[in-house]
């Protein structure tokens, strides 16, 4: 076990996978100097053939990833900020997501499109999105969002070994936080959620940067005698709905905390699934804690207002406990 930052864990995952498999290649804008530090040192270690700086040409980058993967490589295509996935969206949505299907399963496309996402740094609306809802709807793309250094490492290694296109989105505000990472070749399988905290009163599903926020809220609520179960899906597509449903069947209450805009957020998808499949277990309406349907504002007080925080999670949990079929309010004050 070692303490490290998420960005170091990602760097380790890339280094290990490139060392393990000589067909893993990586390219992106300024990946040699590495803005975030996640690709630092890779060109020195693996050479300028396998690690390449690209021009600012997202359209061709995402397309070239498809071609190189179809021709037998495992491609890591670094998109820098997640908003630039939109610039390269055509090849992701029209090629990577569909080529295998359209060609009757003839090819495998082992691609990881990786990017840093999320708000909270006054980077402005074009550098702060969490674009996973749009990606989840493509169908042919796996969507991975880690919340801890250990998960980041294990999920990225699994993503690189996966034979399908994966978008790996690291929450910007988690890059610098330390966490324990187990030694050795850790793999966190895609499509498996993690229960970050066990509890019997309310299920809270939280994504990416929202996991830490939710765990803090859970600490606060525990002092009031409310035990929150915090679930991190880790992979948004395919989603481990079984873990979420099992938890809701136990608690009867669900809050979903998501940094995406409300409409068609990942939270919406999770809420719909639970409403469809566990309606009979629900004690209260499902609540979504999300970003209202606005572009991310620049000014710090506005940005802070828009992003879900600890208090908004606490409020939502209290609300779900105080409404519904059983007397939730009494339960809280017991």
């Amino acid at each position: 076990m070692k303490k490290m930052r998420m960005i170091q864990a990602i760097n380790e995952a890339l280094t290990e996978e490139m060392a393990r498999d000589s067909r893993v290649i990586l390219f992106g804008e300024d990946v040699k100097i590495s803005l975030f530090g996640d690709t630092r040192g890779l060109a020195d270690r693996f050479g300028e053939n396998r690690v390449r700086n690209t021009p600012i040409s997202e359209t061709v980058m995402t397309g070239a990833a498809v071609g190189a993967a179809a021709a037998g490589y495992r491609v890591v295509c670094h998109m820098m900020f997640a908003n630039f996935l939109y610039t390269g969206f055509d090849a992701i949505a029209n090629q990577a997501a569909k080529l295998r299907y359209m060609t009757g399963g003839q090819i495998r496309l082992p691609i990881v499109y990786m990017a840093v996402m999320g708000a909270g740094r006054s980077a402005g609306a074009q550098h702060s999105d969490v674009p996973y809802p749009a990606l989840m709807n493509l169908g042919g793309i796996k969507v991975v969002v880690p919340s801890t250094p250990a998960d980041a490492k294990g999920l990225l290694k699994a993503s690189i070994r996966d034979d399908n296109p994966v978008v790996f989105l690291q929450p910007a505000r988690r890059g610098g936080e330390q966490g324990d990472v187990p030694d050795g070749d850790i793999i966190v399988p895609l499509g498996v959620a993690d229960i970050k905290r066990a509890g019997g009163d309310v299920t809270v599903v939280a994504i990416g940067a929202m996991v830490r926020t939710t765990l803090r809220a859970a600490d606060q609520l525990a002092k009031e005698g409310v035990e929150v179960e915090v679930i991190d899906p880790r992979t948004l597509f395919p989603m481990d709905t079984a873990t979420i449903l099992a938890s809701v069947r136990k608690t009867g209450r669900l809050v979903v905390v998501d940094e995406a805009r409300t409409t068609c957020s990942a939270a919406s998808e999770i809420a719909a699934t639970v409403a469809e499949q566990a309606f009979d277990c629900l004690e209260a309406p499902i609540l979504r804690v999300t970003v209202r349907d606005v572009a991310m504002p620049y000014s710090p007080p506005l940005e802070k207002l828009v992003i879900p925080d600890e208090q908004s999670v606490v409020d939502a949990v209290r609300k779900t406990l105080s409404t519904g079929r059983r007397s939730g309010t009494q339960r809280v004050t017991q």
């Binding site: 600012i56 908003n83 630039f84 610039t87 006054s122 980077a123 402005g124 609306a125 074009q126 550098h127 572009a295 504002p297 620049y298 000014s299 506005l302």
Partner: peptide, 25 residues
């Protein structure tokens, strides 16, 4: 821009300034 754009988005349409841009190109 009322504080909602920041450095990368300064714009003044009344002066024909369609805006800085956070997206290269």
């Amino acid at each position: 821009c009322g504080g909602k754009g920041g450095s990368m988005h300064v714009a003044d349409f009344s002066r024909g300034i369609l805006g800085a841009n956070g997206i290269v190109g």
